[in-house]
Amino acid sequence: MAAADLIPVNIVTGFLGSGKTTLLQRLLTFPELANTAVLVNELGEVGLDHLLLRHVDETTVVLPSGCVCCALRADLTAAIRDLYSKRERGTIPRFDRLIIETTGFADPAPIIFTLMAEPVLRHHFRVGHVVTTVDAVNGTRHLAQHPESVKQVAVADRVVLTKTDLAGRAQAEALRTACRRLNPAAPIFEPAVHPIEPDQLFTGDPADPSGTREEARRWLEAAAAATPPEMAAGHVGSHDRDVYAFSVTVDRALDWTAFGIWLTMLLGAHGEDVLRVKGLLEVVGVPTPVAIHGVQHLVHPPVHLDGWPTADRGTRLVFIVRKLPRQVIERSLAAFNRLAALGERVA
């Protein structure tokens, strides 16, 4: 089954009280989300009145590797399998999208891992955009004090700043700046200023051909705008200052095999600290760009785009990391890539 035929699963995450349920409540009024199933981890103060609403209790099975991001969420597996089974038997409507609303302290990575690795789920579902809500009144404090909050922003594909109408102008601007620094590739929406439509949040994920090229163009712009780590890393002591984004370029086309060896080795050694990697690769022997997209140890299947989104070609990768040095990453990737160029392409 092609990736585009799988049922997209969107994760809506965000710190406690950041407005996840309010956002969902509004989105679910749109007709295009009428066939959406929703799984919630906690029943909040704001009730969701939705036909396909299920509640799950958080149970995590840590795999023998002991890695936190590669933990299988047993609760989610059971809940999603059950939903799918009922959908196929016709006992519930045939939903075409699933939204998972996480708890305020949730780490989205195990949810992504569950969807990508669970033997049944991965044949019926695919990971769509991760949407993170950040509360403009308390968000800056949450980012400084809670690593969970930083990670939720770092792995987001879309950030929704809520309560900007209740926050002071300077407070909201500081939070916008912090979110852009943590995750320059994620567009920021402010529903208090412009009402959000579902397409803005959910279109253009890696398996969605309708928006992939536009999404790639956005990464490239983000790559150009990424804060140099030398500036961001100078401040220590709060969680959000330990995390920063930067872009890496390579001076020649990438050898796919060398890149695979390098990235698997990097994620093996530092996967916990590579919160996000996104890139557009110029691969030797491939005329069109290859998009790559990973969260910690998890890398989505690469996608061949049908063309370059801008006239500017060449490999560009955006990393969101915790305390990893850009120069060393760039030098290491270049060294591995040259290894292939020098070498042993078997004639």
Binding site: V286, V290, P302, E344
Partner: peptide, 30 residues
């Protein structure tokens, strides 16, 4: 994921006669 997006992925003959066997030898060598 490292098995996808090889030069020979997609339809038709791989450029330069690149094959799965050749790719694995290249991988082992690197």
């Amino acid at each position: 994921w490292t098995d996808a997006a090889r030069p020979d992925s997609g339809s038709g003959a791989p450029p330069g006669g690149w094959t799965r066997r050749r790719e694995r030898l290249h991988r082992v060598g690197l």
